[in-house]
Amino acid sequence: MPSEWKVLKRAVESLDLTSDEFEDYVMVITDVYGDAIASSGDFEDFSEEYYDFLNRKVFPHERVISTLREAGVSEEDLIVFQDGEVPCDDLVKTWNKIEFNIDELVDMAMMLKLVKDYSFYSENDMIESRYRFQKLLYFINKYLKKEESYTISNSVGGELGMLDRTGYRYRFTRRDSGPYSNVAYEDKNRLYAWSLIDELVVSEDGTGEVAERNRRYGIKLTPRGEAMVKRVYDRIEESDSVIIYSWNDTQNKVVREIAGMSHDELTNMVKGDKSLLRAESGDELLVGPEKKFQTSEINFVEELTEEIAHG
């Protein structure tokens, strides 16, 4: 979990300091923190050990206490600092409740559904590689681009077809392995970090994909991921939103088309992609829509937020 040091800042957020007092506190505590790190930063991880270090060496430091006292912090609140009993863990959990925007949430929900649907068709009950995962996402967006957007009123679609309004928001560029999106890779990592998907080493032969050069990773839902998909699956399948319907329909088509392909067949399909043939390494190949939904358009936002934000 990044930015653990921010617990220093969060520790006084409930104390009602003025902005000047807050600034004085921040300057003092980061300085005390630096000294403490240099002299006795003996922690190895950033959980219990680290919080214990802060409560021993930083929060009770006399400079910190006197700054807070000068700011008029009550003795009752000060005692928490003096005794080194700042509830770091709770403070971290509170702010770590990440709020995702609606488009990110839907992308991750559709990604989970992709893993679920693909696994159904796959012999191995999983997406067989990170390479295949990236290419599935690419071809879903690519096929959406080919779809005419006549169903959308006042559409400005044009060349982008349905991709102007729906599909994954990812930007694909050309890599040695073909189309690849960094953000898709990060979203997949998030799902993994939240234990919604699992990545298993399935082969010692890499695919040439980014982060898959020496080993091949299969992607499947965890029981927790299964449970989550179950809650939104039908909502997506039966959505009366045209843009969700169109996206889901295209995704299902691509899944059925690619699930039966061997790795070589998929590689040939990728190599035959016209945009790829015209592009140089690093060139942009396909850009997904930046903003797709209003909260009111998706009737399962709450479930998604609940599931993912507390992941």
């Binding site: 930015s3 653990e4 040091w5 921010k6 220093l8 800042k9 600034e23 921040v26 300057m27 980061t30 300085d31 923190y33 630096g34 790190i37 240099a38 930063g41 003996d42 922690f43 190895e44 991880d45 950033f46 050990e49 680290y50």
Partner: peptide, 24 residues
């Protein structure tokens, strides 16, 4: 002052002088 303090907060955390920092 805040910008300096926050940057130092992060950089002294991800500082190789501690094992935790090296891991980070």
């Amino acid at each position: 002052e805040q910008l300096v303090a926050y940057s130092r907060g992060h950089l002294n955390t991800a500082n190789p002088i501690t094992k935790g920092g090296r891991k980070k």
